[in-house]
Nucleic acid binder design. Sequence first.
RNA 1: GCCACCAUCGUCUAGAGGCCUAGGACGCCGCCCUUUCAAGGCGGUGGCGCGGGUUCGAAUCCCGCUGGUGGUACCA
Length: 489
Amino acid sequence: MAHQTQVRVRMAPSPTGPIHVGNLHTALFNWLFARSQDGVFILRFEDTDQERSKPEWEEVIYNEMRWLGLDWDEGPDIGGPYGPYRQMERLDIYERYAKRLLESGHAYYCYCTPEELDAERAEARKKGVGYLYSRRCLHLSEQQRAAFESEGRRPTIRFRVPDGEIVSFEDIIRGEIKTSTDDMSDPIIVRSNGIPTYNFAVAVDDIEMRITHIIRGEGHISNTPQQILIYQALGVEPPIIAHVGHILGADRTKLSKRHGDSFVGDYRDKGFLPDALLNFMALLGWSPPDGSEEISRERMIKEFTLERVSKAPSIFDLKKLEWLNGYYIRSMSIDELTQACIPFLQRAGHLPDDLSGVDMERLKEIVALSQERIKVLSEINDMSDFFFGPPKYDPKSVKKTLTSQGRQVLMTLEKELADTPWEPDALEAAVRGVADRLAIKAKDAFQPLRVAITGSLVSPPLVESMKILGRETCLERIRQGIALCESKS
RNA sequence: GCCACCAUCGUCUAGAGGCCUAGGACGCCGCCCUUUCAAGGCGGUGGCGCGGGUUCGAAUCCCGCUGGUGGUACCA
Protein backbone atom coordinates (compact mmCIF):
# COMPACT_ATOMS: atom_id res chain seq x y z
CA MET A 1 0.00 0.00 0.00
CA ALA A 2 1.31 3.39 -0.96
CA HIS A 3 2.21 5.68 1.86
CA GLN A 4 -0.19 8.56 2.20
CA THR A 5 0.46 11.74 4.04
CA GLN A 6 -1.43 11.87 7.29
CA VAL A 7 -4.70 13.72 7.27
CA ARG A 8 -4.58 16.94 9.29
CA VAL A 9 -7.73 18.97 9.83
CA ARG A 10 -8.62 21.76 12.18
CA MET A 11 -11.35 23.47 14.06
CA ALA A 12 -10.58 27.16 14.26
CA PRO A 13 -13.07 29.04 16.39
CA SER A 14 -12.62 32.60 17.46
CA PRO A 15 -12.89 32.92 21.22
CA THR A 16 -15.72 35.41 21.08
CA GLY A 17 -18.37 33.27 22.74
CA PRO A 18 -19.40 29.73 23.55
CA ILE A 19 -19.62 27.05 20.90
CA HIS A 20 -22.43 27.63 18.52
CA VAL A 21 -24.45 24.87 16.89
CA GLY A 22 -22.96 25.85 13.53
CA ASN A 23 -19.43 25.58 14.92
CA LEU A 24 -20.26 22.21 16.35
CA HIS A 25 -21.52 20.96 13.01
CA THR A 26 -18.32 21.70 11.15
CA ALA A 27 -16.19 20.72 14.13
CA LEU A 28 -17.93 17.36 14.20
CA PHE A 29 -17.39 16.75 10.51
CA ASN A 30 -13.71 17.63 10.87
CA TRP A 31 -13.39 15.40 13.90
CA LEU A 32 -15.20 12.49 12.25
CA PHE A 33 -13.05 12.84 9.19
CA ALA A 34 -9.84 12.96 11.23
CA ARG A 35 -10.81 9.98 13.33
CA SER A 36 -11.98 7.98 10.33
CA GLN A 37 -8.69 8.59 8.55
CA ASP A 38 -6.41 8.11 11.54
CA GLY A 39 -5.65 11.75 11.10
CA VAL A 40 -4.91 14.66 13.39
CA PHE A 41 -7.57 17.02 14.69
CA ILE A 42 -6.22 20.43 15.59
CA LEU A 43 -7.76 23.15 17.70
CA ARG A 44 -6.65 26.65 16.85
CA PHE A 45 -7.94 29.92 18.21
CA GLU A 46 -8.45 32.70 15.71
CA ASP A 47 -8.26 35.64 18.04
CA THR A 48 -7.16 38.42 15.73
CA ASP A 49 -10.35 40.34 16.37
CA GLN A 50 -9.07 42.19 19.40
CA GLU A 51 -12.41 43.78 20.06
CA ARG A 52 -14.41 40.64 20.50
CA SER A 53 -11.94 37.94 21.48
CA LYS A 54 -11.75 37.22 25.20
CA PRO A 55 -9.45 34.68 26.81
CA GLU A 56 -12.27 33.53 29.12
CA TRP A 57 -14.06 32.00 26.18
CA GLU A 58 -11.22 29.62 25.54
CA GLU A 59 -11.92 27.74 28.74
CA VAL A 60 -15.60 27.59 27.91
CA ILE A 61 -14.81 26.15 24.50
CA TYR A 62 -12.48 23.53 25.97
CA ASN A 63 -15.12 22.46 28.44
CA GLU A 64 -17.81 22.16 25.85
CA MET A 65 -15.57 20.19 23.52
CA ARG A 66 -14.74 17.86 26.39
CA TRP A 67 -18.39 17.50 27.30
CA LEU A 68 -19.08 16.55 23.70
CA GLY A 69 -16.20 14.12 23.72
CA LEU A 70 -14.55 15.74 20.73
CA ASP A 71 -10.89 15.40 21.57
CA TRP A 72 -8.09 17.27 19.83
CA ASP A 73 -4.54 16.20 19.14
CA GLU A 74 -2.88 19.60 18.91
CA GLY A 75 -4.04 22.85 20.42
CA PRO A 76 -3.21 25.87 22.56
CA ASP A 77 -3.53 23.92 25.79
CA ILE A 78 -1.59 20.81 24.78
CA GLY A 79 0.74 22.25 22.19
CA GLY A 80 2.00 20.35 19.19
CA PRO A 81 4.70 20.47 16.55
CA TYR A 82 3.34 23.51 14.70
CA GLY A 83 2.41 25.86 17.50
CA PRO A 84 1.62 28.24 18.88
CA TYR A 85 -2.07 27.54 18.25
CA ARG A 86 -3.36 30.99 19.04
CA GLN A 87 -3.09 33.48 16.21
CA MET A 88 -2.09 36.45 18.34
CA GLU A 89 0.97 34.46 19.35
CA ARG A 90 1.91 33.93 15.72
CA LEU A 91 2.28 37.54 14.65
CA ASP A 92 5.92 37.11 13.73
CA ILE A 93 4.99 34.32 11.35
CA TYR A 94 2.42 36.42 9.51
CA GLU A 95 4.89 39.26 9.35
CA ARG A 96 7.41 36.99 7.66
CA TYR A 97 4.86 35.88 5.09
CA ALA A 98 3.65 39.41 4.47
CA LYS A 99 7.21 40.46 3.83
CA ARG A 100 7.64 37.72 1.29
CA LEU A 101 4.50 38.82 -0.51
CA LEU A 102 5.63 42.44 -0.45
CA GLU A 103 9.02 41.50 -1.85
CA SER A 104 7.61 39.34 -4.61
CA GLY A 105 5.23 42.09 -5.69
CA HIS A 106 2.14 40.16 -4.61
CA ALA A 107 1.30 42.73 -1.97
CA TYR A 108 1.56 46.47 -1.47
CA TYR A 109 1.11 49.13 1.17
CA CYS A 110 -2.12 51.03 1.20
CA TYR A 111 -2.59 54.35 2.98
CA CYS A 112 -6.23 54.87 2.24
CA THR A 113 -8.31 55.74 5.27
CA PRO A 114 -11.52 53.94 6.18
CA GLU A 115 -13.41 57.07 5.21
CA GLU A 116 -11.86 57.17 1.77
CA LEU A 117 -12.67 53.52 1.29
CA ASP A 118 -16.24 54.02 2.41
CA ALA A 119 -16.58 56.70 -0.21
CA GLU A 120 -15.33 54.33 -2.91
CA ARG A 121 -17.79 51.70 -1.80
CA ALA A 122 -20.66 54.15 -1.80
CA GLU A 123 -19.71 55.21 -5.30
CA ALA A 124 -19.67 51.62 -6.58
CA ARG A 125 -22.99 50.97 -4.97
CA LYS A 126 -24.44 54.02 -6.63
CA LYS A 127 -23.24 52.82 -10.01
CA GLY A 128 -24.70 49.39 -9.38
CA VAL A 129 -21.41 47.59 -9.85
CA GLY A 130 -19.46 45.32 -7.53
CA TYR A 131 -16.97 47.11 -5.35
CA LEU A 132 -13.30 46.93 -6.33
CA TYR A 133 -10.59 48.85 -4.53
CA SER A 134 -9.37 51.65 -6.75
CA ARG A 135 -5.73 50.63 -6.33
CA ARG A 136 -4.70 54.20 -5.94
CA CYS A 137 -1.95 53.03 -3.58
CA LEU A 138 -0.68 50.30 -5.87
CA HIS A 139 2.20 52.31 -7.29
CA LEU A 140 3.19 54.70 -4.57
CA SER A 141 6.64 56.25 -4.80
CA GLU A 142 8.93 56.45 -1.79
CA GLN A 143 8.18 60.16 -1.56
CA GLN A 144 4.45 59.64 -1.57
CA ARG A 145 4.74 57.01 1.11
CA ALA A 146 6.92 59.27 3.21
CA ALA A 147 4.38 62.05 2.81
CA PHE A 148 1.57 59.82 4.08
CA GLU A 149 3.74 58.61 6.94
CA SER A 150 4.50 62.14 7.98
CA GLU A 151 0.77 62.82 8.04
CA GLY A 152 0.65 60.11 10.65
CA ARG A 153 -1.05 57.56 8.41
CA ARG A 154 -0.23 53.94 9.11
CA PRO A 155 -0.52 51.64 6.11
CA THR A 156 -2.38 48.41 5.67
CA ILE A 157 -1.00 45.75 3.40
CA ARG A 158 -3.09 44.66 0.47
CA PHE A 159 -2.79 41.55 -1.59
CA ARG A 160 -2.60 42.27 -5.27
CA VAL A 161 -5.20 40.19 -7.07
CA PRO A 162 -4.02 39.26 -10.59
CA ASP A 163 -6.02 40.60 -13.51
CA GLY A 164 -8.09 38.56 -15.90
CA GLU A 165 -7.64 35.18 -14.33
CA ILE A 166 -10.04 32.47 -13.31
CA VAL A 167 -9.44 31.01 -9.87
CA SER A 168 -10.74 27.50 -9.73
CA PHE A 169 -10.80 24.84 -7.08
CA GLU A 170 -12.32 21.43 -6.74
CA ASP A 171 -14.59 21.28 -3.72
CA ILE A 172 -15.06 17.64 -2.72
CA ILE A 173 -18.65 18.28 -1.79
CA ARG A 174 -19.61 20.75 -4.49
CA GLY A 175 -17.39 20.06 -7.46
CA GLU A 176 -15.53 22.75 -9.34
CA ILE A 177 -16.05 26.32 -8.22
CA LYS A 178 -14.70 29.11 -10.39
CA THR A 179 -14.35 32.81 -9.79
CA SER A 180 -13.01 35.54 -12.02
CA THR A 181 -10.28 37.62 -10.41
CA ASP A 182 -11.86 40.59 -12.16
CA ASP A 183 -14.63 40.41 -9.58
CA MET A 184 -12.20 40.39 -6.70
CA SER A 185 -11.03 43.48 -4.86
CA ASP A 186 -7.46 43.57 -3.52
CA PRO A 187 -8.01 42.42 0.04
CA ILE A 188 -6.33 43.92 3.07
CA ILE A 189 -4.19 41.18 4.55
CA VAL A 190 -2.54 43.15 7.34
CA ARG A 191 -4.31 45.90 9.24
CA SER A 192 -2.69 49.23 9.96
CA ASN A 193 -2.03 47.99 13.49
CA GLY A 194 0.04 45.13 12.13
CA ILE A 195 -2.45 42.38 12.92
CA PRO A 196 -3.34 40.15 9.98
CA THR A 197 -6.89 39.79 8.77
CA TYR A 198 -8.73 36.50 8.71
CA ASN A 199 -8.16 35.44 5.11
CA PHE A 200 -4.44 35.92 5.35
CA ALA A 201 -3.94 34.42 8.78
CA VAL A 202 -5.95 31.35 7.85
CA ALA A 203 -3.96 30.72 4.72
CA VAL A 204 -0.66 31.14 6.53
CA ASP A 205 -1.70 28.95 9.44
CA ASP A 206 -3.08 26.23 7.23
CA ILE A 207 0.18 26.20 5.33
CA GLU A 208 2.34 26.25 8.45
CA MET A 209 0.26 23.67 10.26
CA ARG A 210 0.33 21.34 7.25
CA ILE A 211 -3.44 21.21 7.03
CA THR A 212 -4.42 18.66 4.37
CA HIS A 213 -8.19 19.19 4.29
CA ILE A 214 -10.23 22.28 4.98
CA ILE A 215 -13.76 21.36 6.01
CA ARG A 216 -15.87 24.38 6.84
CA GLY A 217 -19.23 26.01 6.36
CA GLU A 218 -20.44 27.21 2.98
CA GLY A 219 -20.16 30.79 4.20
CA HIS A 220 -16.49 30.50 3.44
CA ILE A 221 -16.88 29.67 -0.22
CA SER A 222 -16.49 33.30 -1.15
CA ASN A 223 -13.28 33.54 0.87
CA THR A 224 -11.71 30.58 -0.79
CA PRO A 225 -10.55 32.18 -4.04
CA GLN A 226 -8.69 34.82 -2.04
CA GLN A 227 -6.99 32.16 -0.02
CA ILE A 228 -6.14 30.13 -3.11
CA LEU A 229 -4.52 33.20 -4.62
CA ILE A 230 -2.40 33.60 -1.51
CA TYR A 231 -1.34 29.97 -1.71
CA GLN A 232 -0.41 30.45 -5.33
CA ALA A 233 1.56 33.60 -4.61
CA LEU A 234 3.43 31.69 -1.97
CA GLY A 235 4.02 28.77 -4.29
CA VAL A 236 2.15 26.30 -2.10
CA GLU A 237 -0.37 23.70 -3.21
CA PRO A 238 -3.73 24.40 -1.51
CA PRO A 239 -5.28 21.74 0.73
CA ILE A 240 -8.28 19.72 -0.32
CA ILE A 241 -11.39 21.79 0.32
CA ALA A 242 -14.91 20.83 1.35
CA HIS A 243 -17.74 23.24 2.09
CA VAL A 244 -20.56 21.90 4.20
CA GLY A 245 -24.07 23.34 4.02
CA HIS A 246 -25.14 25.72 6.76
CA ILE A 247 -27.56 24.91 9.51
CA LEU A 248 -30.64 27.07 9.38
CA GLY A 249 -33.22 28.07 11.93
CA ALA A 250 -36.92 27.50 11.44
CA ASP A 251 -37.04 30.78 9.51
CA ARG A 252 -34.56 29.37 7.01
CA THR A 253 -31.83 31.86 7.80
CA LYS A 254 -28.46 30.78 9.09
CA LEU A 255 -28.73 29.72 12.70
CA SER A 256 -27.43 32.43 15.01
CA LYS A 257 -27.86 33.92 18.46
CA ARG A 258 -31.00 35.56 17.26
CA HIS A 259 -32.72 32.20 17.08
CA GLY A 260 -32.25 31.42 20.76
CA ASP A 261 -30.88 28.12 21.99
CA SER A 262 -28.19 28.22 19.38
CA PHE A 263 -25.33 27.39 21.73
CA VAL A 264 -24.15 23.94 22.64
CA GLY A 265 -24.43 24.90 26.28
CA ASP A 266 -28.15 25.58 25.91
CA TYR A 267 -28.67 21.96 25.01
CA ARG A 268 -26.39 20.68 27.73
CA ASP A 269 -28.33 22.68 30.31
CA LYS A 270 -31.66 21.31 29.16
CA GLY A 271 -30.46 17.78 29.51
CA PHE A 272 -29.55 16.71 26.03
CA LEU A 273 -26.90 14.04 25.95
CA PRO A 274 -23.69 14.59 24.03
CA ASP A 275 -24.11 11.36 22.10
CA ALA A 276 -27.61 12.32 21.04
CA LEU A 277 -26.54 15.81 20.05
CA LEU A 278 -23.63 14.47 18.02
CA ASN A 279 -25.79 11.81 16.41
CA PHE A 280 -28.33 14.44 15.47
CA MET A 281 -25.77 16.89 14.13
CA ALA A 282 -24.11 14.20 12.05
CA LEU A 283 -27.44 13.53 10.37
CA LEU A 284 -27.64 17.14 9.24
CA GLY A 285 -26.04 16.99 5.83
CA TRP A 286 -24.80 13.45 6.11
CA SER A 287 -26.26 9.99 6.40
CA PRO A 288 -24.72 6.55 6.73
CA PRO A 289 -24.97 4.27 3.68
CA ASP A 290 -27.68 2.08 5.19
CA GLY A 291 -29.78 5.02 6.32
CA SER A 292 -29.69 4.22 10.04
CA GLU A 293 -30.83 7.05 12.26
CA GLU A 294 -29.52 5.96 15.63
CA ILE A 295 -25.83 5.63 15.08
CA SER A 296 -23.06 5.44 17.64
CA ARG A 297 -19.92 7.50 17.63
CA GLU A 298 -17.90 4.46 16.64
CA ARG A 299 -20.13 3.74 13.68
CA MET A 300 -20.12 7.35 12.63
CA ILE A 301 -16.35 7.30 12.56
CA LYS A 302 -16.32 4.04 10.67
CA GLU A 303 -18.80 5.12 8.05
CA PHE A 304 -18.12 8.81 7.65
CA THR A 305 -16.96 9.98 4.26
CA LEU A 306 -16.96 13.47 2.80
CA GLU A 307 -18.44 12.05 -0.39
CA ARG A 308 -21.70 11.41 1.45
CA VAL A 309 -22.01 14.97 2.73
CA SER A 310 -24.74 16.91 0.99
CA LYS A 311 -24.39 20.47 -0.17
CA ALA A 312 -27.86 21.71 0.63
CA PRO A 313 -28.36 23.60 3.88
CA SER A 314 -30.51 21.98 6.54
CA ILE A 315 -32.93 23.18 9.14
CA PHE A 316 -32.34 22.37 12.77
CA ASP A 317 -35.29 20.17 13.77
CA LEU A 318 -35.66 20.20 17.54
CA LYS A 319 -38.34 17.52 17.47
CA LYS A 320 -36.01 15.02 15.92
CA LEU A 321 -33.25 15.91 18.37
CA GLU A 322 -35.70 15.32 21.21
CA TRP A 323 -36.71 11.98 19.81
CA LEU A 324 -33.08 10.91 19.46
CA ASN A 325 -32.31 12.13 22.95
CA GLY A 326 -35.19 10.09 24.29
CA TYR A 327 -33.82 7.11 22.45
CA TYR A 328 -30.43 7.59 24.08
CA ILE A 329 -32.00 8.05 27.50
CA ARG A 330 -33.89 4.81 27.07
CA SER A 331 -30.67 3.08 26.07
CA MET A 332 -28.85 4.04 29.26
CA SER A 333 -28.48 1.77 32.25
CA ILE A 334 -30.36 2.89 35.36
CA ASP A 335 -27.07 3.68 37.07
CA GLU A 336 -25.92 5.87 34.21
CA LEU A 337 -29.24 7.62 33.91
CA THR A 338 -29.46 8.23 37.64
CA GLN A 339 -26.01 9.78 37.68
CA ALA A 340 -26.96 11.95 34.71
CA CYS A 341 -30.18 13.11 36.39
CA ILE A 342 -28.66 14.00 39.76
CA PRO A 343 -27.39 17.46 38.80
CA PHE A 344 -30.81 18.34 37.40
CA LEU A 345 -32.56 17.11 40.54
CA GLN A 346 -30.16 19.11 42.64
CA ARG A 347 -30.73 22.24 40.64
CA ALA A 348 -34.49 21.85 41.15
CA GLY A 349 -33.98 21.46 44.87
CA HIS A 350 -35.17 17.86 44.88
CA LEU A 351 -31.82 16.60 46.06
CA PRO A 352 -29.33 18.22 48.41
CA ASP A 353 -25.86 19.18 47.21
CA ASP A 354 -24.42 16.69 49.64
CA LEU A 355 -25.59 13.29 48.49
CA SER A 356 -24.25 11.32 51.42
CA GLY A 357 -27.67 11.09 53.07
CA VAL A 358 -29.53 10.18 49.90
CA ASP A 359 -31.03 6.72 49.50
CA MET A 360 -29.52 5.80 46.16
CA GLU A 361 -31.51 2.62 45.72
CA ARG A 362 -34.73 4.54 46.10
CA LEU A 363 -33.48 7.22 43.73
CA LYS A 364 -32.70 4.63 41.09
CA GLU A 365 -36.20 3.19 41.39
CA ILE A 366 -37.65 6.64 40.90
CA VAL A 367 -35.50 7.33 37.87
CA ALA A 368 -36.35 3.95 36.39
CA LEU A 369 -40.04 4.81 36.43
CA SER A 370 -39.37 7.92 34.36
CA GLN A 371 -36.83 6.55 31.96
CA GLU A 372 -39.12 5.93 29.04
CA ARG A 373 -41.14 9.04 29.74
CA ILE A 374 -38.57 11.80 29.44
CA LYS A 375 -37.01 13.23 26.31
CA VAL A 376 -34.52 15.46 28.08
CA LEU A 377 -32.91 15.01 31.47
CA SER A 378 -34.45 18.13 32.98
CA GLU A 379 -37.89 16.60 32.57
CA ILE A 380 -37.06 14.23 35.41
CA ASN A 381 -37.98 17.07 37.75
CA ASP A 382 -41.58 17.55 36.74
CA MET A 383 -42.03 13.86 36.14
CA SER A 384 -40.97 12.78 39.59
CA ASP A 385 -41.46 15.81 41.83
CA PHE A 386 -44.10 14.08 43.98
CA PHE A 387 -41.43 11.67 45.24
CA PHE A 388 -39.45 14.52 46.74
CA GLY A 389 -42.19 16.47 48.44
CA PRO A 390 -45.92 16.95 48.65
CA PRO A 391 -47.65 16.66 45.29
CA LYS A 392 -48.43 19.82 43.39
CA TYR A 393 -52.12 19.36 42.75
CA ASP A 394 -52.91 20.22 39.18
CA PRO A 395 -56.26 22.08 39.23
CA LYS A 396 -57.53 20.49 36.04
CA SER A 397 -56.70 17.01 37.21
CA VAL A 398 -58.33 17.66 40.58
CA LYS A 399 -61.46 19.01 38.99
CA LYS A 400 -61.76 16.03 36.73
CA THR A 401 -61.22 13.23 39.23
CA LEU A 402 -61.79 14.44 42.77
CA THR A 403 -65.53 14.48 42.37
CA SER A 404 -68.13 13.05 44.70
CA GLN A 405 -67.50 9.69 43.11
CA GLY A 406 -63.77 10.24 43.54
CA ARG A 407 -64.39 10.93 47.17
CA GLN A 408 -66.20 7.65 47.57
CA VAL A 409 -63.36 5.81 45.82
CA LEU A 410 -60.70 7.39 47.98
CA MET A 411 -62.57 6.77 51.20
CA THR A 412 -62.99 3.11 50.32
CA LEU A 413 -59.36 2.91 49.29
CA GLU A 414 -58.21 4.52 52.51
CA LYS A 415 -59.70 1.66 54.46
CA GLU A 416 -58.75 -1.01 51.95
CA LEU A 417 -55.11 0.00 51.68
CA ALA A 418 -54.58 0.20 55.39
CA ASP A 419 -53.73 -3.47 55.45
CA THR A 420 -53.04 -4.45 51.86
CA PRO A 421 -49.59 -5.98 51.42
CA TRP A 422 -47.43 -3.10 50.11
CA GLU A 423 -46.43 -4.65 46.80
CA PRO A 424 -47.40 -3.49 43.29
CA ASP A 425 -49.39 -6.62 42.42
CA ALA A 426 -51.34 -6.59 45.66
CA LEU A 427 -51.98 -2.87 45.36
CA GLU A 428 -53.27 -3.22 41.86
CA ALA A 429 -55.54 -6.08 42.90
CA ALA A 430 -56.84 -4.03 45.78
CA VAL A 431 -57.71 -1.06 43.63
CA ARG A 432 -59.43 -3.30 41.10
CA GLY A 433 -61.30 -4.94 43.90
CA VAL A 434 -62.57 -1.60 45.09
CA ALA A 435 -63.65 -0.69 41.58
CA ASP A 436 -65.59 -3.94 41.33
CA ARG A 437 -67.26 -3.44 44.62
CA LEU A 438 -68.27 0.09 43.65
CA ALA A 439 -69.37 -1.15 40.22
CA ILE A 440 -67.19 1.36 38.39
CA LYS A 441 -64.50 0.96 35.77
CA ALA A 442 -60.98 0.27 37.03
CA LYS A 443 -59.90 3.50 35.41
CA ASP A 444 -62.31 5.47 37.52
CA ALA A 445 -60.67 4.10 40.62
CA PHE A 446 -57.10 4.50 39.45
CA GLN A 447 -57.42 8.07 38.27
CA PRO A 448 -58.65 9.67 41.51
CA LEU A 449 -56.00 7.71 43.33
CA ARG A 450 -53.36 8.86 40.88
CA VAL A 451 -54.28 12.47 41.39
CA ALA A 452 -54.32 12.09 45.16
CA ILE A 453 -50.89 10.45 45.18
CA THR A 454 -49.06 12.30 42.39
CA GLY A 455 -51.09 15.47 42.01
CA SER A 456 -51.70 14.88 38.33
CA LEU A 457 -53.56 12.81 35.79
CA VAL A 458 -50.24 12.21 34.09
CA SER A 459 -47.65 10.35 36.09
CA PRO A 460 -45.26 7.44 36.22
CA PRO A 461 -46.86 4.03 36.83
CA LEU A 462 -49.05 4.37 39.88
CA VAL A 463 -48.74 1.25 41.99
CA GLU A 464 -44.97 1.13 41.48
CA SER A 465 -44.80 4.74 42.61
CA MET A 466 -46.88 3.94 45.67
CA LYS A 467 -44.57 1.10 46.51
CA ILE A 468 -41.65 3.55 46.56
CA LEU A 469 -43.58 6.18 48.51
CA GLY A 470 -44.61 3.76 51.25
CA ARG A 471 -47.90 3.12 52.98
CA GLU A 472 -47.92 6.02 55.41
CA THR A 473 -47.23 8.66 52.81
CA CYS A 474 -49.80 7.22 50.46
CA LEU A 475 -52.55 7.02 53.08
CA GLU A 476 -51.80 10.55 54.05
CA ARG A 477 -52.12 11.69 50.45
CA ILE A 478 -55.36 9.79 50.04
CA ARG A 479 -56.74 11.69 53.02
CA GLN A 480 -55.48 14.87 51.47
CA GLY A 481 -57.31 13.90 48.28
CA ILE A 482 -60.51 13.32 50.21
CA ALA A 483 -60.14 16.74 51.75
CA LEU A 484 -59.79 18.25 48.30
CA CYS A 485 -63.03 16.56 47.23
CA GLU A 486 -64.86 17.99 50.20
CA SER A 487 -63.55 21.50 49.86
CA LYS A 488 -64.89 21.49 46.34
CA SER A 489 -68.41 20.34 46.97
C1' G B 1 -27.11 46.46 -6.61
C1' C B 2 -22.89 43.07 -7.47
C1' C B 3 -20.66 38.10 -6.73
C1' A B 4 -21.37 33.13 -5.31
C1' C B 5 -23.81 28.83 -3.48
C1' C B 6 -28.23 25.86 -2.98
C1' A B 7 -33.19 23.50 -4.51
C1' U B 8 -36.80 15.45 -3.23
C1' C B 9 -42.75 14.81 1.79
C1' G B 10 -43.86 20.19 7.16
C1' U B 11 -38.47 18.70 8.74
C1' C B 12 -33.81 15.45 8.18
C1' U B 13 -32.72 12.48 4.15
C1' A B 14 -32.10 7.85 0.27
C1' G B 15 -31.76 8.44 -4.79
C1' A B 16 -25.22 9.19 -8.91
C1' G B 17 -30.71 7.84 -16.63
C1' G B 18 -34.46 2.64 -16.52
C1' C B 19 -34.51 -1.17 -9.86
C1' C B 20 -39.14 5.10 -8.49
C1' U B 21 -46.37 3.58 -8.72
C1' A B 22 -39.86 8.07 -5.37
C1' G B 23 -37.60 4.49 -0.05
C1' G B 24 -36.48 5.51 5.33
C1' A B 25 -36.67 8.66 9.82
C1' C B 26 -38.83 12.73 12.91
C1' G B 27 -43.52 15.15 13.27
C1' C B 28 -48.70 14.69 12.56
C1' C B 29 -53.30 11.41 12.29
C1' G B 30 -55.64 6.59 13.32
C1' C B 31 -55.67 1.66 15.44
C1' C B 32 -53.59 -2.03 18.94
C1' C B 33 -51.50 -2.63 23.88
C1' U B 34 -52.93 -0.17 28.53
C1' U B 35 -55.02 2.22 35.41
C1' U B 36 -52.69 7.88 33.10
C1' C B 37 -48.61 9.49 30.29
C1' A B 38 -45.01 7.35 27.76
C1' A B 39 -42.57 3.35 25.37
C1' G B 40 -43.67 -0.46 21.80
C1' G B 41 -46.42 -2.65 17.48
C1' C B 42 -49.40 -1.77 13.06
C1' G B 43 -51.41 1.51 9.43
C1' G B 44 -52.15 6.38 7.18
C1' U B 45 -51.17 11.59 5.54
C1' G B 46 -47.45 13.87 2.66
C1' G B 47 -42.65 15.47 -1.82
C1' C B 48 -39.07 15.56 -6.93
C1' G B 49 -40.24 24.56 -7.36
C1' C B 50 -41.46 26.14 -12.73
C1' G B 51 -40.34 26.12 -18.07
C1' G B 52 -37.51 24.44 -21.94
C1' G B 53 -34.15 20.96 -23.87
C1' U B 54 -30.87 16.07 -24.31
C1' U B 55 -32.55 10.82 -24.42
C1' C B 56 -36.25 5.20 -26.48
C1' G B 57 -36.45 6.73 -21.19
C1' A B 58 -35.02 12.08 -16.31
C1' A B 59 -35.93 13.21 -9.39
C1' U B 60 -31.27 12.08 -11.65
C1' C B 61 -27.71 15.46 -17.41
C1' C B 62 -27.87 20.78 -19.83
C1' C B 63 -30.03 25.85 -20.17
C1' G B 64 -33.31 29.59 -18.40
C1' C B 65 -36.58 31.29 -14.62
C1' U B 66 -38.22 31.52 -9.77
C1' G B 67 -37.23 31.06 -4.83
C1' G B 68 -33.89 30.67 -0.69
C1' U B 69 -29.22 31.49 1.56
C1' G B 70 -24.40 33.51 2.04
C1' G B 71 -20.60 37.14 0.96
C1' U B 72 -19.99 42.01 -0.49
C1' A B 73 -15.41 44.86 6.48
C1' C B 74 -8.61 47.39 8.63
C1' C B 75 -15.24 40.54 11.57
C1' A B 76 -14.30 35.64 11.55
